[in-house]
């Protein structure tokens, strides 16, 4: 028939594409970032074997890393959908403010968590109204929201932070986050890391196997086609912003739980490392494809840079230099996985 390919050479090519080869090919972006993480860690180990052969080095990174993971997972959905959300640092701040102030006023931490999640989802929905409904540029609108919400925090608290040491003795604190002071004495992975891994696994599943994730891919790839095929493009875009708001609320809750303190600046320092983590992990900026697992690896790469630079015997002045160097190197490696196809 006409529909056939032209000849036997193509048949030979197909025989080579075994299950393993297909798996490697379809996951090449995540594999690239994972290899990059290992190579980087090997480099750090060579520079300072004493520090990087001890488990407690990794454990100390795993105390704060989960906060970034709760952000990077939904942000991979946002970028895949062809959008961006730069408001997440302030959403972290505002949602965790709700949590901290409820606990500070003697409220049940569970109620604090519920309210924080609602605040996060509502702020995500507000972003969606600006971007999807009103049609503002996601880059500019969410950047504006980041300043606006941080300003709101400053107006509300006038520079004061909230300390909630009482959270330490609660069941929910033990369940979500082991006391970081205590765990240094025990061999083990901090509880927050386990929750962040579970959240990442859920994200991977949603991204690849659930109709929500698949529609996010289609919308980011070609919104016109997605609409012609009956996908509700606005609804899909709205959901990724709401998902990011929820992720930001979780990040904020964990941040306060880990530190026992809410600062007016909570979340501020996350903007650039988390954004870098998305792209270093292998999700390209153009939309339609990406990797949630890679996003987790990407934030890990960023998290280990500072530890590695200090452990290698360099002063803190080198940290930013290496941030930049490693981000650029990893993006060059990702480039070998190909540019955008149309």
């Amino acid at each position: 028939m006409f529909g056939s390919g032209s000849g036997s050479e193509q048949q030979i090519a197909r025989e080579d594409a075994s299950g393993l080869v297909k798996w490697l090919r379809s996951n090449r972006r995540a594999i690239t970032s994972t290899l990059f993480l290992f190579v980087m860690l090997i480099g750090f180990t060579a520079a300072n074997p004493e520090v990087f052969t001890q488990f407690k080095t990794y454990r100390s990174v795993m105390i704060a890393l989960p906060v970034s993971m709760f952000l990077v997972v939904p942000l991979v959905f946002v970028v895949t959908a062809g959008e961006i959300d730069l408001s997440f640092p302030s959403v972290v701040g505002l949602a965790s403010y709700a949590f901290a102030s409820i606990v500070d006023h003697g409220g049940d931490p569970l109620i604090g968590i519920a309210v924080a999640l609602i605040v996060g989802a509502a702020l995500g929905y507000l972003n969606a109204i600006l971007v999807v409904r009103i049609g503002l540029s996601a880059l500019v609108a969410t950047l504006g929201m980041n300043f606006f919400l941080r300003g709101l925090i400053n107006i509300i608290v006038e520079g004061f932070s909230i300390a909630i040491p009482e959270i330490r003795d609660t069941f929910i604190h033990g369940l979500l986050t082991d006391d970081p002071i205590k765990i240094v004495d025990h061999l083990g992975i901090p509880n927050q890391m386990l929750w962040a891994l579970a959240f990442t696994a859920l994200g991977v599943f949603l991204y690849n196997r659930h109709s929500f994730g698949v529609r996010v891919h289609c919308v980011g790839d070609n919104p016109e086609s997605a609409a012609e095929m009956g996908i509700d493009v606005s609804r899909t875009r709205t959901l990724v912003f709401v998902f990011t708001g929820i992720g930001a609320a979780l990040a904020g809750i964990f941040s306060v739980m880990i530190n026992f303190v809410w600062w007016p600046t909570t979340g501020d320092g996350l903007l650039l490392p988390v954004l870098a983590g998305i792209f270093v992990g292998g999700t390209p900026a153009w939309g339609g494809i990406g990797t949630v697992f890679g996003g987790m690896i990407g934030t890990s790469i960023v998290a280990f840079i500072e530890t590695g630079v200090i452990a290698a015997g360099l002063t803190g002045f080198f940290t930013q230099f290496f941030y930049g160097l490693i981000i650029i190197l990893s993006l060059i490696f990702q480039r070998f996985n190909g540019g955008r196809v149309r």
Partner: peptide, 27 residues
């Protein structure tokens, strides 16, 4: 314009918008 999403698999394109899924949305 064929209404395709070029970066997605053939399977995903065939079922775009009308995936075979269970009632929880799992494909």
């Amino acid at each position: 314009d064929r209404a395709l999403a070029p970066q997605q698999t053939i399977t995903r394109n065939i079922f775009m918008g009308r995936e075979i899924k269970n009632r929880f949305g799992v494909i």
